[in-house]
Design a protein around this nucleic acid. Structure first.
Lengths: 206, 206
DNA sequence: AAATGCTTTGACCATTTGGTCAGGTTAAGG
DNA sequence: CCTTAACCTGACCAAATGGTCAAAGCATTT
């Protein structure tokens, strides 16, 4: 039993290692630019071994996308529709910033996908994301009619939050360059989160 | 003379056609994903002809980047350091939104570059962009000490403006999908610009 | 109209790369 | 032990792709 579990967990670990490095390589070189050889090297495995676990590059890519989507759903949940505007948006922005910091590569892969017309995630955009967006738009519109925030177009507010928070992941390289080549430290991430949160909240009169 | 000019202008036009379509293809497929054949087909020219005008794919790519950078400089100039915060920022945001609408592919190519660690534009980031940013940070800090706006970190304000305005170009596909598959019309672009401008200006107490 | 030099292009080549496969290795169960 | 099945991998292949080149086309000058 113990050995059976060992074999199984070895498989899990291989999958994990491959997916982790694949995300990195796909983020850095795009789908076409990433090579199975590069992912294999990063994973310290022979290329043929990758094809044992993932039949094709596209299959591997889809798995990577799947994982990223799961993380994205976690952030989506943190947008608590029953809380006050300040509470709900602060929490959501904080969560989005945390994800940008913890998973910059995932964010980059997602960005690449969308930039290139979302060939793979089109379905997610049309169903899950679209529905989620609609429910949040409703909530924001209720805030507006309750006089809790200014009458802004909820869509543009959401885009602003997405764009700004994801910028710290997708444009990480530019942010770091303009920071004198040094990665943002704890205090700077904290300052970024506070600035973004404050400007947006005040900007909508929350 | 007339014939000499004709030949010259034919050359100009070929260059223009190639660069235009190259920008599109690079935006849609990334550097590696874009093929000379695809650019040739889009330009309705044989592939060998591309190599007559641009010796290598990288040389063509650099030219595309160069053009985009020129456009970016135009927007940068519209940030008038002698105007009031409201005036300077409204104008800058409007200009950035106009560029997102007029040159979405250029923006996408730029985004791809930065996401992938800016292998080509690193130099621009460290010199021109860095210097430009520093001068604007100074101006914004003066606004703050003059009590014209709230004490926000100028960097994060700039990042927010860049991220949000460029989102409408880079994430065009997502924006369109969430708009029911229809491209934004004049009124929607106008609304987006107004919302973004108002939230940011009010957000910093301008 | 002949010479000159810029422009065009089909055919071709070398390299890269996704994917295959046959044979070997290791672990689980009897 | 021995069988079985999962796992691993070096060697290999076919297709895609960046780039070359020689020969042809064409406009401009003399």
């Amino acid at each position: 039993m113990d050995t059976a579990r060992k074999r199984n967990s070895a498989r899990e670990e291989s999958l994990e290692v491959i997916l982790h490095h694949a995300e990195k390589i796909f983020a850095e070189f795009g789908f076409k630019g990433a090579t199975m050889q590069a992912i294999a090297d990063a994973s310290a495995l022979p290329k043929a071994n990758l094809h044992y676990y993932f039949p094709t590059k596209m299959a591997l890519y889809r798995e990577v996308i799947e994982r990223i989507f799961t993380i994205w759903l976690g952030a989506a949940d943190s947008f608590d529709t029953s809380a006050s505007p300040r509470e709900a948006l602060s929490r959501y922005i904080r969560k989005k910033m945390e994800i940008s910091r913890a998973h910059p590569c995932g964010s980059k892969v997602w960005a690449n996908e969308v930039i290139q017309g979302a060939p793979i995630i089109q379905d997610y955009l049309q169903t899950t994301l679209n529905e989620w967006t609609d429910t949040r738009i409703e909530v924001i519109n209720r805030w507006i009619s309750d006089g809790k925030i200014d009458p802004v177009d909820p869509r543009h507010l959401l885009y602003m939050i997405w764009a700004t928070t994801q910028h710290y992941a997708d444009f990480q390289h530019q942010v770091v360059t303009l920071n004198g080549g040094k990665r943002l430290d704890d205090a700077q991430w904290d300052a970024a989160t506070r600035n973004v949160t404050e400007i947006i909240l005040k900007g909508i009169g929350a």
